[in-house]
């Protein structure tokens, strides 16, 4: 009964993420087919990767020009590995942060399984939970976003051309709205969170707009900004020891 409720809570928390993903991955489906991938390849990419920036970069390696697919070579395989590593290394930090919030019932088997679904948004929602994370909640939270991401890719790859441009563009901001909704409420009551957030914004803008930093990819910019901001916030606003720490009774 209680497990059932937790699973449902997870599903509910995942609905907005899934809806956001539906629109974002729709765009990925369109680009994948335009680049020369079959809808099946596009759908498989989304189902197995569940990540936006990494897939877009991967697409650019698989099909550098419209309709031109790359052959398999050591150089392109290395490029693919390095690119995915660079763009997705932020998940390492997210998983590390979440690993500190896991309930004792999170056995090794669950860790192998649930870590598959750690995305920016899943991470954001899971971090906003006060209680330790149980496996069944994480599965509920992950299920709909993965389905939404895959379904959106399918729809985009088979029917992308029918949506008007204005609507497509407007859907692009949905995912950012969700991030704002995760950060703003705790930033209102916790000065440490506010400090970390504003500092991260400042650093990421510096990296984005100052030309000498142009060699830094957007994936690395996020990592650098987040590490600096959270270190400064941790130094000036250390958390109380009872906060966030204790295992479930």
């Amino acid at each position: 009964m209680k497990k059932n409720t937790l699973f449902k809570t997870g599903l509910c928390d995942g609905i907005p993420i899934a809806l956001g993903y539906l629109s974002v991955s729709f765009g990925f489906g369109i680009s994948a087919v335009n680049a020369g991938l079959s809808p099946l390849a596009a759908v498989l990419t989304s189902l197995t990767n569940v990540t936006s920036a990494g897939q877009v970069a991967g697409l650019a390696i698989m099909a550098p020009e419209t309709g031109v697919l790359t052959l398999l070579s050591l150089a392109t395989v290395l490029e693919m590995i390095l690119t995915q590593f660079t763009i997705n290394i932020r998940y390492f930090l997210m998983s590390l942060s979440l690993s500190q919030r896991l309930d004792r019932s999170f056995t090794l088997r669950h860790r192998f399984l649930a870590s598959f679904g750690i995305t920016d948004e899943v991470f954001g929602v899971a971090s906003s939970k006060k209680e330790p994370l149980k496996p069944i909640y994480m599965y509920g939270l992950i299920l709909l976003p993965v389905l939404g991401w895959t379904l959106g890719t399918l729809l985009g790859s088979v029917a992308g051309s029918i949506l008007p441009d204005g609507l497509k563009y407007a859907l692009g901001i949905a995912i950012y709205g969700m991030f704002v909704a995760i950060v703003v409420p705790p930033a209102k009551r916790d000065r440490g969170v506010l400090c970390a957030s504003l500092l991260a914004i400042a650093v990421s803008c510096l990296i984005a707009y100052i030309p000498i930093f142009s060699f830094i990819t957007s994936g690395f910019a996020i990592i650098i900004a987040a590490l600096i901001a959270s270190a400064v916030a941790a130094y000036f606003f250390p958390i109380r020891e009872d906060e966030d720490g204790g295992d479930a009774a």
Partner: peptide, 10 residues
């Protein structure tokens, strides 16, 4: 603890 908010903001 602060990392998620910093990542999302950036």
């Amino acid at each position: 603890y602060y990392l998620p908010y910093a990542v999302l903001s950036a």
